[in-house]
Design a binder for these strands. Structure first.
Lengths: 187, 187
DNA sequence: AGATCCATGTAACACGTTACATGATTAG
DNA sequence: CTAATCATGTAACGTGTTACATGGATCT
C-alpha cells in the first residue's frame, strides 16, 4: 500500500468515525470491530496510511498527546474541509448494490459432485454461524435500546443493526428450507 | 496479477465451471455473469491467468480448436487430478461467513450529518435497485423451472437462486421499515 | 515474570479491476 | 461498412490483508 490516489470509501469511513468520538487509529479499529463489523471492516494496515492521507488532504489535523497510565497517542480532529468532504460523500448517490462473494453458494452450485452428507454438514455449519451472528446482533440491539438511547447517533445504529437482523434471519430461513428440499423430500 | 501462489477459491470456481460445460475463458465469463452473478464474479483479467495456473497445477489440459464461423478457441478439460482437487475443496468446511461491504449502511451510520431528504433519496434509490434485482431472479427461476428442469444441476441452481430471492426480499422489507421509522413516525 | 491492553507503524504479499491491445466472423 | 459477438490476453493500478516490529503501562 504505497500510493493512495483516488477517492475511496475507506477515507470517509474514518472521517465519519472522527465525528462520533473516535480520535485515534486504535479507537477507530475498536469501533469498527465492535459496531460496524456487519457491514464494514478495516485493518490497521489500512487505517494508519489512510489517516496520513486525511492529513495530506487537509481533512484532519493531528496532535501528539501524553496520557496518564497509558502510552502516548496521536489525537486526530476533523477539519472544516473534512466535514465538507464528508457531507459531499454522504450526499453522493449509491451507484451499485454490494456483491457478496459467498463460498457456500459457490460450493452448492457445484455440489452435484459431492455426497449429500457433506453438503448437509456445510449447511448445518453455516446455519449455526448465522444463528450465532443473529444472537450477537440481538444482544447489541438490546444494549443500545436500554443503555444508549440518549446517544444522538443511536437511531442510525439501530437501523444498520436491523439490516443485519433481517438479512441474517432470511439466510437462516433459507438454510432450513434448503435442508428440507435436499434431505426431507419424503416429508 | 503477476504471481499467483496460494490456493484460492477462484481456481475452484473455474474448475467447477469446467464440469458444467464451460470449456473456454469466454464461456466461463458468460456463465458467471449470467448465473453466478448474485454470489460470485470474475473479470477476464483474472480468468486467463487463473486458467494458466490450472494448467501449471495439472488440474486442466488445453487444446487449440478451430471453429467454423467463429474464431479459434482454446478448449480446456479438467483432469483426474483437477477433479480430485475440486472434490477436496468441496469437502472443506466453510470457515467464515462472508462480509459484505455496504456503502449505504456506512452512510446511514453517519447520517446524523445529513438532511433527512437526502437519506430518504438514498433509501428509495437502493430499494428500486433491490426490486429490480429481485425481479431478475424471479425471471431466471421461472426459466429454470419451465425450460431447464431436466438439467442435472438445476436443483442446485434453484437453491442458490432462492438464497438471492430471500435475502433480497429481506433487504427490501428493511428499506420499507426504515423509511417508516425515519419519515412516518406520526403514522 | 508473563499476559493483556494500549498504541503506532511498515513491508511483503494477495487479490482483483480497468483499460488497453488484438483480431476473426457474422448480421444488418 | 459498421456494429455486435466471439475470443484471448497483458500492464498498470487499486485495494486490502498478514506478518512483523516496537514499546509503554497495568494486572495477576
Amino acid at each position: 500500500m504505497v500510493f493512495i490516489t483516488r477517492e475511496n470509501n475507506t477515507q470517509y469511513a474514518l472521517l465519519g468515525l472522527l465525528t462520533i468520538g473516535c480520535d485515534t487509529g486504535y479507537s477507530m479499529k475498536q469501533m469498527i470491530d465492535g459496531s460496524l463489523n456487519h457491514f464494514w471492516k478495516i485493518s490497521y494496515g489500512q487505517i494508519y496510511p489512510t489517516l496520513k492521507l486525511l492529513l495530506d488532504n487537509g481533512y484532519a489535523e493531528v496532535q501528539d498527546l501524553a496520557q496518564e497510565g497509558k502510552p502516548d497517542k496521536k489525537e486526530y480532529k476533523i477539519t472544516d474541509e473534512g466535514t465538507e468532504a464528508l457531507k459531499r460523500w454522504l450526499a453522493q448517490p449509491i451507484t451499485e448494490l454490494p456483491l457478496e462473494k459467498n463460498e457456500l453458494l459457490l460450493k452448492l452450485f457445484f455440489s452435484r459432485h459431492q455426497d449429500l452428507e457433506s453438503t448437509h454438514h456445510h449447511l448445518e455449519n453455516y446455519q449455526e454461524k448465522l444463528v450465532s451472528r443473529y444472537e450477537t446482533y440481538e444482544a447489541i440491539k438490546e444494549m443500545i435500546t436500554t443503555r444508549l438511547s440518549a446517544e444522538e447517533d443511536a437511531p442510525f445504529w439501530l437501523i444498520t443493526l436491523n439490516y443485519g437482523l433481517r438479512t441474517t434471519q432470511a439466510a437462516i430461513d433459507w438454510c432450513e428450507e434448503t435442508k428440507e428440499v435436499l434431505f426431507h423430500k419424503e416429508g
